[in-house]
Design a protein around this nucleic acid. Structure first.
Lengths: 137, 137
DNA sequence: CCTAGTTCCTCTAGCGACTAGAGGTTCAAG
DNA sequence: CTTGAACCTCTAGTCGCTAGAGGAACTAGG
């Protein structure tokens, strides 16, 4: 039996966050102590590790709820889990592509600045004037 | 003189967002019509374009406030603007690096799944078991 | 000049995924 | 048995918007 603090230490998930996940329906303490404190077993620990891992990979709470639901039904086809993972992969790739365009723009901005004062600072000028950009964003 | 709707159309910033920027102290309408509606001039239009552009590049409202403050003082050294841009560039690069690690992980996850049911689905298994990962995240 | 329809006003509340704090209770070690 | 850490619930705040209510003011056509 683990307390909420034990779970927190073992998974690196903060205590209020664990309670938040409970509220969101991802993880419930099956038992309470006599004094109403949450008590968790092995399977809750594992589930929290699963949640933590999925959050680290950028899955939303909703997506995680769906994945948990799937993992509770070991006999179902795993096409749904595949789809969720692929959607997440596509979203991540999209974010990377957009960030890389920003990176170029910012890099140019920060490195081209040769002025001494704000009046001829390239950073300020390029923010004011979109036509100095090389891409749309 | 532009109405808030004119500004919105010209900058592609939604009307409530313009009001939000006003609340945040980024952009104020200097005048109002007799019926209390916001009226903007050229310089507000330009400033909103500046804000929009900076937001597109991922600058926070706070950073933009600082940049606007700088651009209002054309005689000051532009080292501060440089610093803000470089910080933003570093943050973007960091996010890209982390997303790329996630991408690899998700890709492996989604492509390695050869099982038919959730019970042996690689997606579910690798979420449950961190040791299947190749990186820390 | 009147009316209809659009745009505008302020104010409040909601989103996602937490985080922080108040005010009080329970647990575990010494 | 006492002390101090950990726990409880509840509310409110974070960021950058977005949505909606309820009402006032514009603008174009008749």
């Amino acid at each position: 039996m683990y307390s909420i603090g034990d779970l927190s230490r073992r998974t690196q998930v903060k205590v209020p966050t664990i309670r938040y996940y409970e509220q969101m329906g991802l993880l419930a303490a099956l038992e309470r102590s006599e004094g109403n404190q949450r008590r968790y077993g092995r399977s809750e620990l594992e589930r929290l590790a699963f949640i933590r891992h999925a959050r680290d990979l950028g899955f939303s709470i909703d997506a995680i709820r769906a994945l948990i639901d799937l993992s509770d039904h070991k006999d179902r086809p795993c096409a749904d889990a595949d789809r969720i993972a692929k959607e997440q992969l596509a979203a991540v790739r999209d974010r990377i592509a957009r960030l890389q365009r920003l990176e170029q723009e910012l890099d140019r901005m920060a490195s081209c600045c040769s002025g001494d004062t704000v009046g001829d600072c390239y950073v300020i000028r390029s923010l004011a004037d979109h036509t100095l950009c090389q891409h749309e964003h």
